Amino acid sequence: MKVLIVASLFAPWRLGGAEVVAESSALALTELGHEVQVLTLSPDQGTSQDHHDGYEIRRIPLVNIYPLQDMGRATTLQRVRWHIKDHWNSAMQIAFTFELKKIQPDVVLLHNITGFSISIYESLADASVPFFQVLHDHYFICLYSTMYRRKKICDGQCLRCSLLRRRHLKTTQFATGVIGVSNFILNRIKSMGYFSGVPSNVIHNLSDKPPKINLTEDISGSCPKIGMHPWLSWNFD
């Protein structure tokens, strides 16, 4: 099976657990004998293609105000402009669609999509490619993915986040399935209407002794059975 893994950042550039999980799933699927390609954003705004541990990594430029690696140095105005563009980044949708046509995956596994933007959901739906979203944080309901502002946890969406995440409500319904790395993150996002009607499951992050589960080859149905050794397995019925 040809599997495409999409992640905003990928090794050796990491911010947290999401990048570790994406890298581990790429390696695990490769070890199971599947053809794995990773699509990620380039740190130097260039285009590159290389192989690592048996799978291919394709890096493409981020078309936005600044690259992800410069977010910590951006001004408030630059950040506002960046997030407005990330709300629905048509330029990244075009770039993603171009890569999708070249790769022609059987299934797509999305991790963090900051920078790619939710617009890539439309590309995947138009191409009729089954895809699964892994929820690592609050990206779908919060511009900064944290639900934390002014030294306190947000009880709900502020007006700004609600407006710039409104289009996500409908678009997330295109997903074949959604996975939360915890009950909390999955329930919170779904309780606000995102991924409404989309089959879901909770699959916790890496464990010391994960079960060995094979990846099912049959993805002909709308909700394919997919296993991720050593990280996860799920079955949406």
Rank of each mutant, 00 (worst) to 15 (best):
K2Q: 15
V3K: 05
V3P: 02
V3W: 08
L4C: 09
S8M: 08
L9P: 01
F10C: 04
F10P: 03
W13S: 00
R14A: 08
L15Y: 09
G16W: 08
G16H: 07
G17S: 05
V21T: 11
E23C: 01
S24H: 08
S25T: 15
A26P: 07
A26F: 13
E31L: 15
H34I: 01
E35H: 09
Q37T: 15
L39H: 07
L41G: 02
D44V: 06
D44I: 08
Q45K: 12
T47L: 05
T47N: 11
S48T: 13
S48C: 06
D53F: 12
L62K: 13
V63D: 14
N64A: 13
N64D: 07
D70Q: 14
T75D: 08
T76R: 12
T76K: 08
L77Y: 07
Q78C: 03
R81K: 14
H83W: 12
I84R: 13
D86P: 04
W88C: 01
A91K: 15
M92N: 04
Q93V: 00
I94L: 08
F96G: 00
F96L: 03
E99S: 10
L100E: 03
I103F: 15
I103T: 13
V107E: 06
V107P: 04
V108Q: 04
L109F: 13
H111K: 02
H111W: 05
H111Y: 05
N112G: 09
N112A: 11
N112E: 15
I118W: 06
I120A: 02
A125E: 09
S128F: 08
V129N: 09
P130D: 08
F131W: 07
F140H: 13
L143H: 10
T146F: 12
Y148G: 00
I153Y: 07
C154S: 04
L164N: 07
R167K: 14
L169F: 05
K170F: 08
T172D: 05
Q173F: 01
Q173N: 05
A175C: 14
T176N: 05
G177N: 05
V178K: 02
I179A: 04
I179S: 03
G180Y: 04
F184H: 14
R188Q: 14
I189Q: 06
S191M: 01
M192F: 09
M192N: 07
F195G: 00
V198F: 06
S200H: 10
N201A: 14
V202K: 10
V202F: 12
V202S: 11
I203E: 10
S207R: 14
P210D: 14
P210Q: 14
L215D: 00
T216M: 08
T216I: 11
E217M: 07
G221T: 15
C223P: 00
P224D: 07
I226Y: 10
G227W: 04
P230K: 13
W231T: 14
L232F: 13
F236T: 02
